[in-house]
Design a protein around this nucleic acid. Structure first.
Length: 564
DNA sequence: ATGGATGAG
DNA sequence: CATTCTCATCCAT
């Protein structure tokens, strides 16, 4: 514990440049030469560098962006499918290139952390044991069959931070820039960073040649430092941090720029450093930008103690993390490669959504996308891949969730309600019965949870939805599992019975109206609808019997299935 | 487990 | 500040 030198991890962080814009430029090459913005509703999610030179900003209102740059070309980016696909493709490509390194983590669609410690140590051993030369074959794999790329041992790719703090020649790493001999631990760490820097360049070159995306990268000894290092030179560039100057590097950052310190934590910490600022001044409107104090990491370190942070609303746990991060101590590991997401959500936003009919249309549309994604991301189909065999679940979600934001309860936050995911959703996906399942999801799941949420939030009249989000969660990576149709009946365990949903809803005013609009089309009478006594789902009466059989199966066959 | 808060891009 | 459309983790219950 006393001496960590020589045991430092080596982390590469890669960040694709203005990713959404870049994806569109690949889709439509003529967009490469024009100022390009990606629109989501009233804002630009991002824009290319040509647009940035013309004064366009990320997250700018569309009208402001057009004012700044009248010939801005705008494409719609509300459907994230092409971005998600490109992101996966690049990630899988890099994973396939670095066979044997499992610590590879995506952050959003456009960033990757890679822990290259084992790979670099392997190569350093090879290099130190080989005859001296001008080049070295870097091994991308830890065991045969090997793929390699050549590195020039007299040339370190740009950039280093501080500038030119690491000599370009591998054999000169034992001396610093003023010719001073370095301690052996430092030399070894520099040698490892040297190799990782070449690797980062190689990976960026490969991503450019195979996927036509430029990227920026940072190379250092922790996730925090690697990520921050990558911000120094961009786009299409990379930076390796000199390992003995990291504190000075961190000290210059505004506290809110440190990954993991977001808006809330940053505001609390700024207040502690400078109590003169009133909360309203910190949080409101136009002046915000002017009044907001920039509080640097150095100030936090020198004007506060960890105890100050711990006694603040941050609390002891957060305080300890923050205190460690700003002192360059970051033991956050790079997670294992993830093949399946832990949740799949789909959402849309609105200026105003009040009519029941419109709400049901929205639910149908969102559920349709949700089911497609479940099918493509959670189901393996050997036949679609040109082979034979049954479809099987790679991983199964446990929960269905609906989140909304209303105008009244508006700012800030979403309210959500969730239920165990019924088995008929899973069978619908496997059987490809998208249409029937969508309708059922909207009527029995989405609608009921929305009623619950609005009722419990005291918005049974005068509601006005601004956001509707549906999704499945609790997806557990089930690698190597053998799950076929039928298993989900027994494999999911017992579902919670929610009494309140089964109750006859008693609502007044507009709620009834809303419900009538949706369910009573003039010809329907009460006898058409029934409520399941087990799960409370509302459904057409003639489907109740079949529905009850699902529940029976759930309970009777539960123990026969392969639950690990 | 559920639902909210907070973080990330 | 939040704007968009996600995704992840932590915490109280």
């Amino acid at each position: 514990m006393t001496d960590k030198r020589g045991k430092e991890r080596i982390i590469i962080h890669i960040d694709y440049d203005c990713f959404y814009a870049s994806v569109w430029e690949n889709l439509r090459p003529e967009l490469r030469t024009v100022p390009l913005g990606i629109q989501q509703k009233s804002i630009l999610a991002t824009c290319n560098y040509i647009a940035r030179e013309r004064g366009v900003k990320k997250l700018q209102l569309i009208k402001d962006a057009k004012a700044a740059c009248p010939d801005l070309v705008i494409v719609n980016g509300e459907d994230l499918t092409p971005f998600r696909d490109a992101s996966r493709s690049i990630f899988n490509f890099i994973a396939g290139t670095l066979v044997g390194t499992n610590q590879m983590e995506r952050l959003g669609f456009d960033e990757i952390f890679i822990d290259v410690t084992a790979l670099v140590d392997h190569n350093l051993a090879l290099l130190l044991n080989s005859a001296p030369g001008d080049t070295f074959s870097f091994h991308l794999t830890l065991s045969p069959p090997h793929t390699t790329f050549p590195i020039n041992l007299h040339n370190l790719p740009p950039y280093t931070h501080p500038s030119d703090s690491i000599p370009p020649s591998f054999s000169s790493l034992s001396l610093d820039t003023s010719g001073q001999a370095q301690p052996p631990e430092t030399i070894r760490l520099l040698q490892r960073l040297y190799l990782a820097t070449h690797l980062a360049t190689h990976l960026r070159t490969l991503v450019k040649s195979t996927h036509n995306h430029t990227a920026s990268a940072g190379i250092s000894t922790s996730k925090t430092l690697a990520k921050l290092a990558g911000t120094i030179n961009k786009p299409d560039a990379q930076t390796v941090l000199h390992p003995t100057t990291t504190q000075a590097f961190l000290d210059k950052f505004e506290i809110g720029k440190i990954p993991g310190i977001g808006r809330k934590a940053a505001t609390i910490i700024r207040q502690l450093v400078n109590p003169l600022i009133e909360p309203e001044e910190q949080l409101h409107e136009e002046w915000f930008e002017d009044v907001k104090q920039k509080v640097t990491v150095l100030e936090v370190r020198t004007k506060l103690t960890q105890v100050d942070l711990a006694r603040s609303p941050l609390g002891g746990t957060e305080a300890a993390k923050v205190w460690a991060w700003i002192h360059g101590l970051d033991d956050q590991g790079v997670g294992a490669k993830k093949t399946v997401p832990s949740q799949i959500t789909v959402e849309d936003t609105f200026r105003s959504l009040t009519r029941a009919e419109a709400v049901m249309e929205v639910l149908d549309r969102l559920h349709s996308k949700m089911l497609s994604r479940m099918s493509s991301e959670l189901v393996e189909d050997p036949e679609a891949a040109g082979g034979v065999g049954k479809k099987r679940w790679i991983a199964v979600p446990k929960t269905y969730r609906l989140s909304i934001r209303t105008r009244k309860h508006g700012f800030g936050n979403r309210v959500s309600r969730s239920m165990p995911l019924p088995s008929w959703v899973l069978s619908g996906v496997i059987n490809g019965d998208n249409e029937g399942t969508v309708g059922r999801l909207s009527r029995e799941m989405g609608w009921n949870l929305m009623k619950r949420a609005l009722k419990e939030e005291g918005e049974e009249r005068g509601w006005d939805l601004q956001l509707v989000n549906v999704g499945v969660a609790g997806i557990e990576g089930a690698e190597g599992g053998r799950r076929t149709i039928g298993e989900f009946f027994g494999g999911k365990g017992k579902q919670t019975v929610r009494e309140e949903v089964a109750e006859v809803e008693e609502m007044d005013g507009e709620w009834e109206l809303w419900e009538e609009e949706c369910y009573v089309d003039g010809e329907e009478d009460e006898d058409v609808w029934g409520v399941c006594s087990v799960c409370g789902g509302r459904m057409l009466r003639f489907t109740l019997e079949a529905h009850a059989r699902f529940h029976a199966l759930e309970h009777s066959e539960g123990m026969d299935m392969d639950m690990a």
